[in-house]
């Protein structure tokens, strides 16, 4: 299935590291402190092979921010964070003495924004480098167990491929890891690859 060469992966990694850098800049402007985001790995797999091991998910509950986007290719992008870690991060970003219980009331909207910043930064980096325009829906936030999330990803039969990015986020010494999952149909994956090829063709 997977027509991605090492060079394709390298190009995508560079795009997403630029996206991560932009997201870190936006977040640092909100929190007034250094924010570090890195994308240590990228993989493209068949959605039936996706499981809690590939996503490094454990038992707890996960917050999932999703946006549907369309353009030269269509995909659903889902950003996953462990809910308790995400709440701590949102708490740090709000810079107050709020308890976790108090934070819960702001969780929905604040997580939408955090996810929106990271997703938009990645999409805009893609748009800049591969020279295309994407449109996107507003972000949506749900909280579910790893099993529920994976079940939904697997049953999405129109989109047999998933691109999984592991994301490390550090704000004011608090560290968390998340996953950015792109659900892609075969034609969307082909279209993404052809854009990467076009880009590589210009520089080699």
């Amino acid at each position: 299935m997977n027509n991605l060469s090492d060079l394709h992966i390298d190009a995508l990694a560079e795009v997403f590291s630029i996206g991560a850098g932009r997201a870190a800049l936006s977040l640092s402007e909100i929190v007034g402190d250094e924010v570090r985001i890195s994308v240590p790995s990228i993989q493209v797999i068949n959605s039936k092979d996706i499981n809690s091991a590939t996503l490094l998910l454990n038992d707890g509950r996960f917050g999932a921010v999703s946006q549907y986007f369309s353009g030269p290719f269509n995909a659903e992008a889902v950003l996953l964070f462990a809910e308790d870690q995400a709440l701590k991060i949102v708490g740090d970003m709000m810079g107050s003495q709020m308890s976790i219980e108090e934070l819960a009331e702001f969780e929905h909207e604040a997580m939408c924004e955090l996810g929106n910043i990271i997703l938009n930064a990645c999409l805009s980096a893609m748009a800049d480098i591969f020279e295309f325009t994407l449109e996107s829906s507003l972000p949506d936030y749900t909280v579910a167990s790893a099993d529920e999330i994976l079940h939904r990803l697997k049953t999405n039969s129109n989109q047999p491929y998933v691109m999984v990015l592991h994301i490390d986020l550090t704000i004011e010494k608090r560290h968390t890891a998340g996953n950015l999952v792109f659900l892609l149909s075969s034609s969307s994956l082909d279209s993404l690859i052809s854009h990467v090829d076009q880009f590589l063709g210009k520089i080699s």
Binding site: S17, I18, G19, A20, G21, R22, A24, L25, S28, E34
Partner: peptide, 8 residues
């Protein structure tokens, strides 16, 4: 060259 252009 960096994608990360924060003040630090």
């Amino acid at each position: 060259f960096s994608a990360n252009i924060q003040e630090t």
